[in-house]
Structure formats: C-alpha cells, structure tokens
C-alpha cells in the first residue's frame, strides 16, 4: 500500500544554506508519527515543502502514491493534506462557527456558491456540529474568535484543519503555549483523532511525543538523523546527545 505521505530525496536550498537535506521519509497509513529535532533543524521548512508553501530545490513528494510535488497548496488540501500552525493562524473577526463552516463548505465545493446562505445545507450544519463536539467548542461557537481563551483557540486551530477532512494531518506543536489547566483537554482531543487520519506531529514536548507517537523521526541540520519506534529513539544515546547538547525547549 502506498504511504499516506512520502518524500524522496527532498532538498531545499536557500542560497548556500541547505535547509532540507535529502530527506526520504514515509508516513504510513493511519500512522502516529512524530518529527522531532532541535531548533533550527529545518522542521518548519519541511512542513512548508509538504504543504506546498515552498517549492523544493529537488526531490519529490507523494500523497497517497500520487506525485504532489508540483501541486498548488490548495490542491494538496483538496487531496487530503491539512496542517495546523505552531502560532495560531485563525480568523480573529469570525466566530468558530463561521470558521469551521468555512472549511466545511469550502471542502464541499461551496466556496464558489455565492447565492445560498451559508448554513442552508443540512450536511454542512451536521458536520459543523460534529466537529464542534469533537473539539469541545459547542459552548463557544458564537463568540468572536479573538475573545476565546487561548486553549480554545488552540482547539479551534486543530478543528479548522480537521474540518478539511484530511487523510494526512500535520500538527505543528499543537500544545505550544497552552496553560496547564487547559492542556489535558487539548491532549485528549488529539489522542481521540480518528485512526484513519494519518498524523505527523511536530513537537518539542517529549511527554506528548512519547504518549502519542508510534514512530519518531529525528531531524538534525535538515537531514533525517535517525528514525525508529519510541522505544528505539528514546534509548538512542546519539539522540540524547543531540538533545542534551542543545536546549530542548524554545
């Protein structure tokens, strides 16, 4: 079976700097895969290559076995690749209801619909409700997003990506900055993501990585340093050296 997401010999150079160095990587169907690495390892560049924000210098990207290297970002979303952002990227003046409704109706091809009122379609409403429940946003649906508590905004951040019905979900430090009191709720929803969604988690927080992931890839200086099960990577002395040599947190 084709991998949910695969890269072959992916390279990205910015001038003389190699930000992504010959990365060959597989995200299996239904995987819970974590990508870790010290600051400046090239995690963000790697995500931007995957989502199409940046074009690779060389190499290929496959989505479900289909070559997506030349695809535009929005086409990749339509093909089932969605991401969240490490720093919230929300619509401050819109409500969570509108935000989720936007993503849902866009996926159903409604963005070209300029005559019907958003919400006049039953299937859109049902899906908004389902997503709101999954991400525990039902009681905040009609608030302005900029007025939501930070933890709720973080949940919405994932909910928007989830509303694209991705087959591959890239979570970029989902718990970053969430206060301890709201953390549990967030981790619970991440853990409860349906198994048919393959998840790539980019994370600094080792507790979250170890509790969530089946496999871990370690990125150092733009290249895959090592990859293996949680057991293998967590006991690998070289990984420890990389992490002990550098500060783990931001």
């Amino acid at each position: 079976m084709a991998a949910a997401l695969e890269t072959r010999n992916l390279v990205k150079r910015f001038g003389g700097i190699v930000a992504t160095d010959n990365v060959t990587f597989r995200l299996e169907q239904g995987a819970r895969h974590a990508l870790i690495g010290p600051n400046g390892a090239g995690k963000t560049t790697f995500i931007n290559l995957l989502t199409g924000v940046l074009a690779p210098t060389s190499g290929q990207i496959f989505l479900d076995g289909v070559d997506a290297t030349q695809m535009r970002p929005e086409s990749r979303v339509h093909r089932g690749l969605a991401r969240t952002f490490q720093i919230n990227q929300l619509f401050p003046a819109m409500t969570p209801l509108e935000t989720i409704g936007l993503a849902v109706s866009e996926r159903m091809g409604g963005g070209r619909d300029w005559w019907r009122v958003t919400g006049s379609r039953r299937e859109i409403v049902d899906e908004i409700v389902e997503i709101a429940q999954r991400f525990r946003l039902t009681d905040a649906l009609d608030e302005r997003t900029s007025n939501l508590a930070y933890g709720k905004q973080r949940l919405l951040e994932i909910a928007v990506a989830f509303a694209c019905r991705p087959r591959v979900l890239l979570l970029d430090e989902p718990a970053a900055g969430v206060p301890e009191a709201e953390r549990h709720e967030l981790l619970a929803t991440v853990a409860a993501l349906p198994r048919d969604v393959s998840v790539l988690l980019i994370e600094h927080d080792m507790d979250l990585v170890f509790s969530f992931a089946d496999r871990i890839s370690v990125l150092v200086n733009g290249a895959i340093f090592t990859e293996g099960t949680v057991e293998e990577v967590s006991t690998d002395p070289r990984v420890r050296a990389v992490y002990l040599g550098e500060s783990v947190d931001e």
Binding site: A82, Q89, L102, A103
Partner: peptide, 12 residues
C-alpha cells in the same frame, strides 16, 4: 482576516 490560513483550508 488571514490569507495564509485561508490558503491552508484550501481556498484559492
């Protein structure tokens, strides 16, 4: 509000 995110939810 946020063209970056709009793109990320698949809006052309």
């Amino acid at each position: 509000d946020n063209p970056l995110r709009a793109r990320a939810v698949g809006i052309p």
